[in-house]
């Protein structure tokens, strides 16, 4: 479903991604781990067209993103939603209006009652109360805002969800909630790509775990095979996870 073929992305002279290749199949839950600042989030932004590639190719369902015009990009972004590290909700709008943004821009609802139905269904799916719809983002906790941002991606009917550091800054209870949500969405058939350095989460939820190091994919493992890896950074991530078990 998602393919990176020799993707290179530079910021001035520094290559953040250098001939990076990966494949994510439909319905897979894939975690991309790596140290901070190695380009994990950059890879997600390249996929949805927020950043332009310097070289290489990204394919979504076999179609190169280089061929897409503006309308087709909108179609891709509908099918493949990025959930940012910040909840990125529009402060000046209510939660309802935030959720309605994508529906209206993409013309997905035939009527206002249809629109409300879509929004209420997805807000319930992420485990939130409908009374939140009238409130503003800054009246909600950070973890609730994160769940709203997931609902905002679901409401446009995305088949693939891209999570950028979904549990960063959350307490263990809310981390577990988000992990359950990701796992549930994955098991329901959606393709999930999570960028994270949370090995606990990766071990609990992922089908595959990729390591981004040296601007390319340095390891491609599963939760079962990862413990036999000799890669020093993988060992470091595992030791760190074992030293801080989840309660």
């Amino acid at each position: 479903m998602i393919e990176f073929v020799n993707v290179t992305k530079r910021f001035e002279a520094q290559a953040v991604l250098e001939k990076m290749s990966l494949t994510i199949e439909k319905g897979e839950i894939v975690f991309l781990i790596g140290r901070s600042g190695v380009g994990k989030s950059v890879s997600l932004k390249c996929l949805v067209g927020l950043l332009k590639l310097d070289a290489g190719e990204i394919r979504f369902d076999g179609r190169s993103t280089a061929e897409l015009d503006e309308k087709e990009w909108m179609g891709l972004r509908r099918r493949c939603s990025l959930i940012f590290q910040n909840p990125a909700l529009i402060d000046s709008m209510t939660i309802y209006d935030n959720l309605a943004l994508g529906i209206r821009a993409m013309g997905l609802a035939a009527s206002r009652s249809n629109e409300r139905g879509l929004i209420e269904r997805e807000i319930a799916q992420v485990g939130l109360d409908l009374s939140l719809l009238k409130r503003y983002p800054l009246e909600l906790s950070h973890s609730t805002q994160k769940r709203v941002s997931v609902a905002r991606a679901l409401v446009v009917g995305s088949e693939a969800l891209l999570f950028d550091e979904p549990t960063t800054g959350l307490d263990p209870i809310n981390t577990a909630r988000i992990n359950q949500l990701i796992e549930g969405l994955g098991r329901a058939g959606r393709t999930i790509w999570v960028v994270s350095h949370d090995m606990h989460c990766a071990l609990a939820v992922a089908d595959r775990i990729l390591l981004l190091e040296g601007a390319h994919i340095a390891a491609d493992l599963t939760p079962k095979t990862i413990r036999s890896s000799n890669h020093p950074l993988i060992r470091q991530f595992l030791e760190e996870a074992d030293a801080r078990p989840l309660h």
Partner: peptide, 16 residues
Amino acid sequence: TMRVTDQIDALTCLGV
């Protein structure tokens, strides 16, 4: 503030 908190990118991703 909207730019550095990804709100502008989020709008683009929503087709706005």
